[in-house]
């Protein structure tokens, strides 16, 4: 691989997105994300897929500029109006984000998939990676967890309309405002919560570092009914892989049930930002998030000096 000094964030220390410096004042953020349908309604799915793709730019503290559609569509079995609605959902979210659609690519595929390749911009000295947290930082989470369990419960015919509406409105919500507010608050580190689940992505913040982390389960916002779905075993396929991948990094100091661990490792779609912010700024940031309608945001833990490279999970 060419060792390019302008590559500021790349594969070596995988972050939410790649960042490449164009000049001393400007770097581009590049990311791509596409998913299979998580809800039945095509317009809602389009919005979710776009919010999910844009989120990686917001997690770096950047501003999305342009985007390209990535479409896999079963043209023989599905009506083209479904695709039109999906793309309309994506378009509306891009508009809300202030980003411009510049093109895209579609192929015929048995399984529908949609997402976007997004390019954003940022000042090279203002990049927020998942690595920059400091001892004494508080951890804020901006959306509830449990989208994977709710989605499985929907498939199983257990979750009702109300659950669907709650997770849909969360998954379609952009992380734009949360990102802007964390920048104002002087956040040290950030990542967005997606497929690896809350503890999976939190692990990435302290992995191979001199930092430890504490997470308090009772402070974590969780969608209604998710605990019941976990107790019924309605667990998505990715959860166990997430647990196996990161279990070495987790220390439990109190009795945390297996069902709760399945919530903490539940793969999320278009999840919230996990933000490490200086302790003295945390309460003000939290109030600010609530004032801007990000009502579920909560302080869920903090960065400690010990245990290095590990997470303490307590009740």
């Amino acid at each position: 691989m060419v060792d390019d000094p302008n590559l500021l964030v790349g594969l070596e220390r995988a972050d939410d997105a790649g960042v490449y410096k164009l000049s001393d004042e400007l770097a581009i953020i590049q990311t791509i994300d596409f998913i299979t349908p998580i809800v039945d309604d095509p317009y809602t799915f389009g919005q979710i897929a776009a919010a999910n793709a844009l989120s990686d730019v917001y997690a770096m503290g950047g501003r999305p500029l342009t985007a390209m559609n990535v479409v896999c569509f079963p043209i023989k079995s599905q009506d083209l109006s479904v695709l039109t609605e999906i793309l309309r959902g994506g378009w509306d979210k891009l508009w809300e984000a202030g980003a411009t659609l510049v093109g895209g690519h579609s192929i015929d595929d048995d399984e529908l998939k949609y997402g976007l390749s997004v390019t954003g911009v940022i000042h090279p000295l203002k990049i927020i990676t998942k690595d920059g947290a400091e001892v004494g930082d508080k951890l804020l989470l901006t959306k509830p967890v449990g989208t994977g369990l709710v989605s499985t419960a929907l498939k199983g015919g257990v979750a009702g309309e109300e659950s669907l509406e709650q997770v849909s409105s969360s998954m379609t919500a952009l992380n734009k405002v949360a990102s802007e507010l964390m920048l104002e608050a002087g956040a040290h580190a950030c990542t967005d919560i997606t497929g690896f689940g809350l503890l999976g992505h939190a692990s990435g913040m302290v992995e191979d570092s001199r930092l430890g982390m504490e997470i308090r389960v009772s402070s974590i916002p969780i969608f209604p009914e998710v605990k019941e779905f976990a107790n019924m075993g309605l667990v998505p396929g990715g959860t166990q892989r997430n647990r196996e991948y990161r279990s070495d990094m987790i220390e439990m100091t109190s009795e945390i049930s297996d069902e709760m661990l399945n919530i903490l490792f539940d793969p999320q779609t278009s999840g919230g930002l996990l933000i490490a912010v200086p302790g003295k700024e945390a309460e003000a940031l939290l109030q600010n998030l609530h004032r801007h309608g990000i009502n579920e945001a909560a302080i869920i833990g903090e960065i400690l000096a010990e245990p290095q490279g590990r997470i303490i999970v307590r009740e």
């Binding site: 499985t152 498939k155 199983g156 015919g157 257990v158 019924m232 075993g233 309605l234 667990v235 998505p236 396929g237 959860t239 166990q240």
Partner: peptide, 13 residues
């Protein structure tokens, strides 16, 4: 079959 299909099939049964 892997999760969540066994649970959903059992629930339906």
């Amino acid at each position: 079959l892997s999760c969540p299909m066994p649970v959903i099939k059992t629930k339906n049964a």
